[in-house]
Amino acid sequence: MGTILKVDKVTMQFGGLRALGDVDFEIQEGEIFGLIGPNGAGKTTMFNCVTGVYNPTAGSVTFDGVAITGKRPDQIVEIGICRTFQQIRLFPNMTALENVFVGVDARHKTQILGAIFRSPRHRREEREGEAKAMKLLEYVGLTRFANDLAKNLSYGDQRRLEIARALGTGPKLLLLDEPAAGMNPVEKNGLRDLVRKIRDSGVTVLLIEHDMKVVMGLSDRVAVLDHGERIAYGKPEEVQKDPKVIEAYLGSGAGGNAASKQSKQEGA
């Protein structure tokens, strides 16, 4: 059980706005790591820095001992990191199966000539890819929607489909950006089970979550961001009691449940 992801003094500056300032944390192989913090704290920005969408202004990200800062998103997928999006970004006019197939294709090797001449490898990959995509749909419980267009799935199912698509790329580390946002309580329970199942299958999970109940129940360890600074880091029970965290979530320390306050602010 070693460190799988090391985020070292990552800073992301957008003009005058410092979205991340010297953020450090390490994720251990096989754990569920929670990244939490109020809206605008810089959580999604951190995802974008890890997955190659943004190139951090300073600092480095190391995955499995390899520096990945500055690499392209597709290279990072190949190395073994894949993500979902806070605002769902499926391929809306592709079927659920095709969506997952695109993810699975990340591990395929067929190039243009192989496709034009229907090489044996192409045919094998098409066959195996479809089977693998179907398996993943079953894994997240979407088998019966395989041939439906992604955009016609319910919101909760779309979130599950995004997870299946990301799993298709065969990641060692899965990044989930607020996967429970907009889900009803039943769907949230299902999601919790799914995330655990994914972890138990050997995939490390980095989870952004607003819903404190979800994140605290799931995470082995958490880091808390506020205004781009890491204000707390450790076991969920300890972090929850940290005055700085309570302050960040509740503002002036007024009463009320942090989670419900957040979901109101958010209004997806």
């Binding site: 998103p73 999006f85 970004r89 993810g103 990340a106 698509r165």
Partner: peptide, 8 residues
């Protein structure tokens, strides 16, 4: 963006 994030 999603395509790139899926390894395209």
């Amino acid at each position: 963006v999603a395509a790139a994030a899926m390894g395209v």
